Amino acid sequence: MRRLGISLYPENSTMEKDKEYITLAGKYGFSRIFTCLLSVDGDREKVVEEFKEIIAHANTYNMQVIADVAPSVLRELNIKYDDLSFFHELGAYGIRLDEGFSGLEESIMTCNPYNLKIEINISNGTKYLDNIHSFRPNTSNLIGCHNFYPHRYTGLSYDHFMKANKQVKEYGIRTAAFVGSQAEGTFGPWPVSEGLCTLEQHRTLPIDVQAKHLFATGMIDDVIIANAYATEEELAALSKLNPELMTFSVEFSADASELEKKIVLDEFHFNRGDVSEYMIRSTQSRVKYKNEAFPAHTTRDIKRGDIIIDNDLYGRYKGELQIALKDMPNSGRTNVVGHIVEEEIMLLDYVEAWDKFAFLAKK
C-alpha cells in the first residue's frame, strides 16, 4: 500500500503549529511524518519531552514518525547503535540515518527488539545497501528514503534517481521520496529553501503532479511533502490521488459533447495490448456506444496530449477514445474533445500495454 506523508521541523516552528498541521494532515489520510533530529543541544530530557508530545499527537492519527539522525546526534545523546531504546521511548516508528555507518551497525540496528524501522539514504546510488546486506540485517525493519534538495538545480536527475531506485528495489526495500509544497513562506531544516524536492524537475510543478510522477515510476512507495507547511488545498489534492491508477487532469474542448465527456470521465479505460507509438487506445467505448451518434466537431490537427474520440465518419471506430502520443494530421474523422494539462503530458510515457488509467476534469 502506497502512503502519503508530511514533514515537521520543531526547531523552526512551534508545538501548537506542528500539532495543527498533524491534525489537518490526519484529516486527509496522511500516515507518515518525517522530522529532523539533526541538531540537538545535548539536553536529553528536553529532547525527549518535546518529541514525545509531538509523536504522541501524531500517533492519535495513526501517523508513523521517523526521525532523521546523524552519527553526531547519537554521540551527543549518548545513544549506542545497539541500544535504540531512546527512540522507542519517544514513540517513534523508526529512524532515518542521514549518514551511513559501516554496514554492520545498520544491520545490528535492524535487529532492535522494538522493531523500529531503520531508514537509509538511497539517493547516492552506491553499493551501500549491498554492504548492509552482507551483514545479514533483519530486512523487515530496513527501508529506504531519498534526500531532498533546498538549493535550486541540486536535485537529483531523473536518470540517476531511477538507477538508484533499481538498486534498492532488487532487495525489495520499501522506498520514499519527497515532493515540495508550492505555498509561500514554507521552510525546511536549513536557511536556504528554494523549494524542497527529490527530483530537480519537480521544483516548480504542482504538488499533485510531482506525486503522480513519483508513483508512476513504479519505484516509490511513499511520497512525503518535504517543506512545512503545505496548504490544505495541497493536502486535499494529494489525498484525492489514487496511487495505483494513473489519473490525468483534462481540459475539455468548448464543443465536447456531454456523451464525449461521459466517456472520458466515467468509463473504465485501459490501453490495448497491441500498442501503438502514436496513441493510447481505449476501445470499449466504441462497443458500448456503437448505436450513438458522434457528430464531427473540433477536427483540427492533433497534438501530443490531446484526448480524441473518433466521430461518425470513422465507421466502426466511432466512439473509440484515444490519447495522442505524437502530433498527427487529422483527417476530419476524429474529434479533439480535450487535452491533458501541460504539466502532466510527461506522464503519458508511463502508460504501457494493458495499463489502466482515468481522467479528472480540471477545475
Rank of each mutant, 00 (worst) to 15 (best):
A324W: 12
L104H: 08
I280G: 03
D130Y: 02
L238P: 12
Q182R: 04
K27C: 08
E232P: 06
G94M: 01
N271P: 04
G315D: 12
K362S: 12
Y93I: 02
T299L: 00
H160M: 03
E352Q: 15
L235I: 08
M63G: 09
S102P: 04
M63C: 06
E277M: 11
K288G: 01
Y21G: 08
D159I: 12
S276R: 01
Y149C: 04
E99V: 08
M328N: 05
F51G: 11
D130T: 00
N112E: 11
C145M: 11
V192Y: 12
N12L: 07
I308T: 13
K166S: 02
S140P: 09
G188R: 00
S72C: 06
A230V: 10
S331E: 14
Y93R: 04
L235D: 13
S181C: 04
I340D: 13
G125D: 14
N112A: 08
E119R: 03
F161G: 00
N311Y: 01
T35Y: 08
Y81L: 05
L97I: 01
Q322G: 09
G155W: 01
G144N: 03
Y81M: 07
H339V: 10
Q210W: 00
K261F: 05
R136A: 10
Y350K: 10
M346W: 08
S13N: 07
F215V: 00
I120K: 08
E234Y: 02
H57G: 06
N115G: 01
S249F: 11
Y128N: 11
T198M: 12
C111T: 14
T298S: 11
E260L: 03
H160V: 03
K363Q: 15
L116P: 13
I345E: 15
L245E: 12
H297F: 07
Y278M: 06
I6M: 02
S276N: 07
H146P: 01
K362D: 15
N112F: 12
D274H: 07
Y171T: 02
L241H: 12
V337Y: 10
L142T: 05
S134I: 04
D98H: 04
A230F: 05
E119W: 09
Y229Q: 14
L84C: 05
L347M: 14
T283Q: 11
I173C: 02
T247W: 02
K19T: 07
D159Y: 15
E232D: 13
E200A: 08
L4E: 07
F161Q: 03
L241T: 04
D83K: 01
E89C: 05
A236M: 13
E234S: 08
N147D: 12
Q64K: 13
E16K: 06
P243C: 01
P243K: 02
Y317N: 06
R96D: 11
A92Q: 01
L321Q: 11
I79T: 01
F87C: 15
Y28G: 14
Y317C: 06
S123L: 04
R32H: 14
C36W: 07
Q182M: 06
S285C: 03
L265W: 05
H57R: 10
G188E: 08
I108P: 07
A183L: 00
M246W: 03
R3K: 14
A216C: 00
I263M: 07
